[in-house]
Design a binder for these strands. Sequence first.
RNA 1: CGCGGGGUAGGGUAACGGUAACCCGUCAGGCUCAUAACCUGAAAAUUGCCGGUUCGAUUCCGGCCCCCGCAA
Length: 290
Amino acid sequence: MTTTPSTCTFAFFGSSRLSVIVLDELEKIGLKPTFIVTTPDKPQGRKLVLTPNVVKMWAQEHSIEVFDPPTIDRGFLDVLKQKTCDVYIVASYGKLFPEELLNIPPGKTLNVHPSLLPRYRGASPLPTAMLDDAKHTGVTIMRLTKEMDQGPILAQKEIVVSEWPIYEEFEERMAREGAQLLASILSDWVAGTITEQEQNHAQATYTKKIEKEDACIDLAGDPYENFRKIQAYHQWPQAYFFIEKNGNRLRVKITSAQFISGKLVIEKVIPEGGKEMSFADFKNGYSVEV
RNA sequence: CGCGGGGUAGGGUAACGGUAACCCGUCAGGCUCAUAACCUGAAAAUUGCCGGUUCGAUUCCGGCCCCCGCAA
C-alpha cells in the first residue's frame, strides 16, 4: 500500500472530477504522469462560455503536458507512439478508446473503476450503487480491453459505506482509494509480477447513463429511497420535485437533506429562478404544503 | 446574439397606476408549571440604479448593474 514506484512512468487519461481526485492522490504518493490526455473544452455556463475541463486545468497548474484531441484518430495515435512511458492509466475519460491505443505502452492500459467488478460496469457505477443501497462496494484496478469494463482484474479493495454521503464525497473517497490501490501495485505490474484474473462475466451487472428525469422524486414516496436519490444525484442533475405557482409548474431542486429516524428531512432547496434557501424559508414564502 | 425567471422590511414571498400585504424571525406584554405552542402589540422597506410616460409608479417604457433556473 505504500509502494512508491518512482522508476515507473505513466500517462494519464481522464476528463472528470473523479479523474482530478485520482491525480491528486497519485501526486500525494509521489506519482506524476509524464503527460495527460483529456477531452476538449466544451461550451458551458449561462452564456455558453468555453470553460476548460478540470483535468486540463490540473495539468496546467502542475505544468504537465496535456493533449485534448476531439477524437482519438490515426493522427493522434501516431503522436502517442512518439511518447514513451511504461503504462497508460485511465480514470473516467468519458470516451471509448480504439483497441490499438490500449497496447501502445509495454505495460498496456490500466483502469481505475469505482466498483467491485464485474458488478456495476458502465457509465454510472457510483450513483447506481447509491440508488441500490449497495453499501458493500469497492474499487477495482483492471486492464482495459476492447469491451467496456470487461478486462481482467489486477487488484480490488472492498469498501463498506455506513451512511450515504452526498455523491461528491462518495466519489472522492472511492477515487482516493482507487488511486492508492493503483499506486500499490503499479510498479509490480510494470515489473511483470502481477497475475491478472479474468472477470466472472456471468455475475456482471451494468449501469446506465443518468437521465435528468431519473432525478424527479415523489415526496410522498419512500423516504429512504428519496434520500438516496438526493444524495446520488447531488452533483447532477439534482433531485427535484414540482409545485404549482400562479398556475405554473415550478421545479424545485433539493440540495441538502437528511434521513433521520425513518423520515426524510429536507434542509435546502433551489426553486426555479431563485437561489438556494432553507426549506423552512421556502415553505414560508411560497406558502406551499409539501 | 442559445432559452427562461428574478431583484420589495433580517430571511422567504405578495400586490400591480393612487406611497405597500403575508409567513418566519426580532423586540415588548399576556396566557401557561413550562414551551419551539397560543394571544396582543411594536420596531423594521426612500419597493437594485438611472432616465422616460403620468396629476401620481413598486406597478408601464428604455438603459445599466447584480442574482438565479434550463441547457451535459
